[in-house]
Design a protein around this nucleic acid. Structure first.
Lengths: 222, 222
DNA sequence: ATTCAGAGTGAGTACTCACTCATTATTATA
DNA sequence: TATAATAATGAGTGAGTACTCACTCTGAAT
């Protein structure tokens, strides 16, 4: 396991259990769980396997997490919150109006920022993506955070730049979806489908920005 | 279970076991398996549950499929082949050159065609997407079919239209990825994330085509 | 020195899992 | 109608499952 993962693991745990102290073995458990969940999937992973990889007795897992499902939630929930964090800050739209004059600048900032996030938390994000469709608790969290917060807020940004005449007058939901698809499509290819390929991130980002900005431009070229 | 599913189930089975006759109960088994796999995931589904839903003894499953994994492959493999079928026809590029003069026409045809495919086989595609990352057999199939066949062939199409001066001179892989992201992003939102929303497919298709064509246009607007 | 709280243990629990097999039901052919 | 071949059954199997619990150990407070 790469060193950089350990850096955020303890922090991750303390996000849920504030004031609670986190033991050495607890970190080992979460560390092992993330690795195996990402490799084999949640359902195909046994608690005995996690215990073995963590170098811990099986009972120790259940001292800290009432159920296997609780362990999953303790790992995924804080990352889901951090995933949407940039969008739920106070006065999101006003901050942007001041900070980013052009839609292009806003998009580029978001793109770079969330790509770095994906690289950092790739294994947890993989577990998250795969378990949301089958886990009602995660589904509810996802709907609440992503749907209501992110989509709705980004929607308003799009409407704002539409009013300014920077991008086309099309349904804002569709525009949000197409931009999100472009970014998520790159993140998935970059970090999950072909992480070994030697990527030129700057070039790809420039190309995506050009693709999206031309794609949403007012005056069709042809 | 909707009627339309039954229509392609028997056909699906016969694709693998040519000349073999397919029993009534075999169809029931596959039918039940697809439903539960899509609902709970492969690993979280027990063979006893499949048997119960299919109205069949558990042993009957293992008469037709040696293992639970074989049952999965019998369901997913033929659909994976059908998914890439339009791309692996003989003289793919030559056919296209004659049939579609503009890149836009090619993209629109592919978009409409593969969206209909997604609607038809949505449950199996869901299972496929979720199991590929954890199943070596499916991974190998996916790499072989999608990577080597589809991406490589579509890449050549892109290069062809680039040479004609219809679209920008950027890495063909990136262009393929951005177009695929746009289409897959819509398919996922349309049929998995928000299938209940009342979609205007024609409008969305027009918008996506406009987005992609402007996005890949030679002369930036700004 | 004694008590106490909580981390850690690992054998044990009831139960579920994928898979088997001897037996019976159904069908096709003669 | 008799025979062969295949389809279907469901109780049975051992390995494995998530989880429990009585217990030990450690370190800090009294």
């Amino acid at each position: 396991m790469p060193d950089h993962v350990e850096q955020w693991l303890a922090e991750l745990l303390r996000l849920n259990d504030e004031e609670e102290k986190v033991t050495e073995k607890q970190i080992k458990i979460v560390q092992a769980a993330v690795e195996i969940f990402a490799e084999k999937g949640y359902s195909a992973t046994s608690t005995s396997e996690i215990a073995q990889k963590a170098g811990v007795a099986e009972g120790t897992i259940f001292r800290h997490y009432k159920t296997k499902q609780n362990l999953l939630l303790a790992i995924v929930s804080p990352i889901m919150e951090k995933l949407v964090a940039p969008f739920v800050i106070r006065n999101f739209q006003e901050v942007l109006n001041v900070q980013y004059e052009r839609f292009e600048d806003f998009m580029r900032a978001m793109l770079i920022n969330r790509l770095a996030f994906t690289r950092k938390y790739a294994p947890v994000l993989k577990v998250m993506i795969h378990e949301i469709p089958f886990n009602p608790d995660l589904q509810a969290q996802f709907m609440e955070h992503v749907s209501t917060n992110v989509v709705e807020r980004v929607r308003r940004i799009v409407v704002h730049f539409q009013a300014q005449g920077q991008i086309i007058e099309a349904p804002a939901d569709s525009i949000v979806r197409m931009c999100a698809s472009t970014i998520v499509g790159y993140a998935v290819t970059r970090y999950f489908l072909a992480p070994e390929r030697d990527w030129n991130d700057d070039e790809e980002i420039d190309l995506m920005i050009r693709f999206m900005m031309n794609g949403l431009s007012l005056n069709p070229v042809r």
